[in-house]
Simulated assay, not measured.
Amino acid sequence: MALTDADVQKQIKHMMAFIEQEANEKVEEIDAKAEEEFNIEKGRLVQTQRLKIMEYYEKKEKQIEQHKKIQRSNMMNQARLKVLKARDDMITDLLNEARRRLAEIAKDPAKYSSLLEGLVLQGFYRLLEPKVTIRCRPQDVEFVQAAVNKNIPIYKEAVKSNITVKIDKERFLPAQICGGIEVYNENGKIKVSNTLESRLELIAQQVKSHRNDIVT
């Protein structure tokens, strides 16, 4: 039985509807898959970027912390240097004041005589020589002689040895020396400087050495 045009048209429409439905379903399937792949890729990209951002800010945070540490260290060093500078200035002022007042020490006969006694005896002990020569200022010869006379017995008793002491009355200490003595062995090659200036310089070196120990 031959199909009429109407039947053909009907079958064509039916096939077209079927094809259209299949196409729509395929499009929906593709869209769904594309949406799924998009969401997966989007999630991957978001996670990747989030990790990059976290790494970036973590790096920045470390840089900021390092910068803070450097700044803190610089500030501490600057403060430390200011403290040391102030301390050095104070020590310098004290030493300068002490140098200015050295000359006043010799103006008090009682105190100066007692000081010379200690300087003379220390000179004996540091040299430990049987014969020594003492140099002093010309105005101090009598004070030094008295100190020698007092300390010879003390020295002999302490070291169980004799000592001969000569006060050099031809070569005196320089005029700028404020006081004290220099003690030499017999041939003059060994010297113990116990002038007021040398004692002050010894104190200054000890103070500076202590300062250096603090710095290091």
Rank of each mutant, 00 (worst) to 15 (best):
E35L: 11
I134R: 04
R101Q: 02
L81R: 15
K85F: 10
M76K: 15
E97I: 02
K107I: 01
Q122R: 11
A23L: 07
R99P: 06
V46I: 15
E61P: 02
E36D: 10
K62G: 00
L127G: 01
I30W: 07
C136Y: 08
I64H: 03
A34Y: 11
K111G: 03
D31C: 06
A32L: 10
L119V: 02
P130Y: 03
L102I: 03
I30F: 11
M75G: 07
F18G: 10
P130M: 00
M16V: 12
L121S: 04
P130N: 05
A106V: 06
R50Q: 14
R87S: 06
L102N: 00
A23C: 01
E58R: 10
V132I: 03
M90Q: 10
Q63V: 04
L95R: 04
V83S: 11
R126M: 10
L51A: 15
N77S: 10
E55S: 14
D88K: 12
E117T: 12
Q139T: 07
H14S: 14
P109I: 00
L84G: 02
I12K: 14
N74V: 08
M75A: 09
D88G: 13
E37H: 13
E36R: 13
E25L: 10
D93G: 04
I105M: 02
I19A: 15
K85Q: 10
R100K: 12
L84I: 14
K60S: 01
K131M: 09
Q71W: 04
R99K: 12
K69F: 05
E61F: 10
L115Q: 01
